[in-house]
């Protein structure tokens, strides 16, 4: 069928998500899972939250292994994230797809969604909730990396250390940003499963 269509000069639909965005999305998904699960194990060595993460959802088997995973996957997360950010800004994709951001439209679209009246006909256009959450999680991604760098190198990166209010506070910011990303992911995965064609679009492009 596809071959026939091509022969007839009918192009495949233009991808909703360019190949670079799709690759970056899935690399990020894997790197994030590794970072979060190993991060939970690192947290458990000296918790700042009033609880420990169950060992079954941590990676590395303990502090030593978890640190090795964390400091290996950070390169994948950081470099992939940087490529995604540069592309998003330089290509105009962020400006085109994430604006305007308004709490009002996010609220209205949430209500519409709860009433079952939010359409998903055109996947290339994000609704108000998507624009807010996607822009928000990108900001949290920048925050989690920046606070992580302040924890990793508080002496060599003095500006980051001061920005986050010294080592102990940087840990709290890092943990809070992770929590935000984790909550986003819960909603994001649930929505992708509720609207399977959006998941398909992030895999094959359209």
């Amino acid at each position: 069928m596809i071959r026939l269509k091509r022969a007839a000069g009918i192009a495949r639909p233009a991808p909703i998500h360019p190949l670079l965005v799709r690759i970056a999305h899935w690399i990020n998904a894997i790197a994030m899972v590794v970072m979060v699960m190993s991060g939970w194990a690192i947290h458990n060595a000296h918790p700042i939250a009033p609880f420990l993460f169950p060992e079954s959802v941590t990676l590395g088997g303990g502090l030593i292994g978890a640190l090795q995973w964390h400091f290996a996957a950070m390169w994948v997360l950081g470099i992939n994230g940087l490529i995604y950010l540069v592309y998003g800004f330089a290509s105009g994709r962020f400006a085109r797809k994430l604006r305007p951001i308004s709490l009002r439209s996010a609220f209205d679209d949430t209500l519409a969604a709860l009433r079952g009246r939010l359409g998903h006909e055109d996947l290339s256009r994000y609704n108000g909730v998507q624009r807010l959450l996607y822009a928000g999680v990108i900001a949290l991604g920048v925050l989690v990396v920046a606070s992580g760098m302040a924890i990793w190198k508080p002496v060599q990166f003095p500006l980051l250390r001061i920005l986050f209010g010294d080592f102990d506070n940087a840990r709290i910011v890092h943990f809070t940003a992770m929590t935000g990303i984790f909550l986003f992911t819960l909603i994001h995965v649930a929505m992708a499963l509720l609207v399977p064609k959006s998941l398909r679009a992030m895999i094959r492009g359209y």
Binding site: E55, L59, G60, G61, G62, I64, G65, Q68, W69, F71, A72, W75
Partner: peptide
């Protein structure tokens, strides 16, 4: 330390992580 992880083969993961360190 890696034996806590069932999904990833201990030996190859150990080598990669050691190399990253």
């Amino acid at each position: 330390m890696l034996s806590g992880c069932d999904v990833i083969d201990g030996f190859s993961a150990e080598r990669v992580l050691g190399g990253m360190s």
